[in-house]
Nucleic acid binder design. Sequence first.
DNA 1: CGAGTGGTTGAATTTCTTCAAGGCTCGTGG
DNA 2: CCACGAGCCTTGAAGAAATTCAACCACTCG
Lengths: 238, 238
Amino acid sequence: MFDSHAVTDLHAHAVSETYQARVASTDFENLLKRVVLRRRIVQAKQVVFRAGQPQQFIYLVHSGVFKTSLTAADGREKITGFRLRGDLLGLDSLGTPNHACDVVALDVGEVWELPIDQLRAQIPDFQDRLTAALASEIRRDWNWMLALSTLSAEQRVVAFLLDLAERLERMGFSSRQMLLRMSRADLGNFLSMQLETVVRALSRLQALGHIAIDGREICIRDRNGLQAMLDYNAALAA
Amino acid sequence: MFDSHAVTDLHAHAVSETYQARVASTDFENLLKRVVLRRRIVQAKQVVFRAGQPQQFIYLVHSGVFKTSLTAADGREKITGFRLRGDLLGLDSLGTPNHACDVVALDVGEVWELPIDQLRAQIPDFQDRLTAALASEIRRDWNWMLALSTLSAEQRVVAFLLDLAERLERMGFSSRQMLLRMSRADLGNFLSMQLETVVRALSRLQALGHIAIDGREICIRDRNGLQAMLDYNAALAA
DNA sequence: CGAGTGGTTGAATTTCTTCAAGGCTCGTGG
DNA sequence: CCACGAGCCTTGAAGAAATTCAACCACTCG
């Protein structure tokens, strides 16, 4: 459906050369072809930046999977999305001095530091692309809000899997076999349900023969079957 | 807390002159002082624009209250926010040819048509303010996502009331007495709960003596009491 | 090898939803 | 002018979906 995700490549960083060829370059990467940027390798569980830290750069995800999250003063936490190659990190802090969210790597990854003011001056299109990316993030968020508040727990899990598959497919990866980089707890947090509920939903999808689960490795056996579980409401309405 | 809302003024349009003096001008209004803009009066229940329509303008809310919503193909609907004076409508469609959401007036109101490309050229600061507004919308959305997925139904209603009160206060209105422009159903939709649950939550808040309800008119009797219901989690954590 | 982390499943409980009924207000037409 | 219907709000009672609590397993890492 929209945001979220994970990646099939276990060693994205190490073999990036290989994948470079196979995986289509993202819009922003093309835009930044001629610019020299500082690249930063981030190990699994490491923090890219935290809420409250002074905002110097926006980051472009080049490889790996990241989660962005908010934490309330009383400790309540919410994962706002899982970010893949081509996604920007820190958009939400534009126009403010500090970052508004935490970003943590779920596996090894590489991010590119974008000095925004400089790029705005250097690249004519840059500002427009940035604006478009911001608007796109809003639409993504709204679509997830819609999903979270109108779908059952099971349907939300289905929506997540289909969205992820689609994103991976767009990146040139297999859309059938995928590796969830996040824990069941993270998934539950993002989808607004308990981790046990995620597990039960996945188990049932497997029992229905729609997916095959092997730990964090998931194989989509019947994409249409999954899709039908979302279209179910439409059938009712008709 | 963040987005949402309603307004105390029953006749905002009719007496706008009066309120002009009382209510602080918004950032964008100051920015646009010297520009001649088309103003559009919108009657209650009328549509400002619909998802799918070609996007020509961004609108600035000058008076009234508006709701923005998404509708899925199968009819599932989600209100993404209630918009007050100073809020921009249509930000989410920047960089795309069509609007992504519906905007409907909840009472009489006035919006200003902003021809973005023109304003970008005319006003040096405009682009930055636009970017800041987009980022701010993202933060708002994320904060509501956090609230919706971590607070109980009752707490969500409390969060809504406090957020609304704060927004009204910033606008120069009373933060104690307020008129909810939206139906209980709209409120429930926004807060991800059934309208009956909204009613029960409000009734209980009244029983606790924290608010007084008279239809859509709500008086906050004990702001601290309400706040304490949100801080409850913090107490547990400690 | 033992501790820790993450995943899975069952059973009891809770919160919220669903269904149902009744009341209030307002506008329209008889 | 009043009657009547529509829309919205409120409350109760029954039901369902998801959470909570608990136990157990598999795997990895010192």
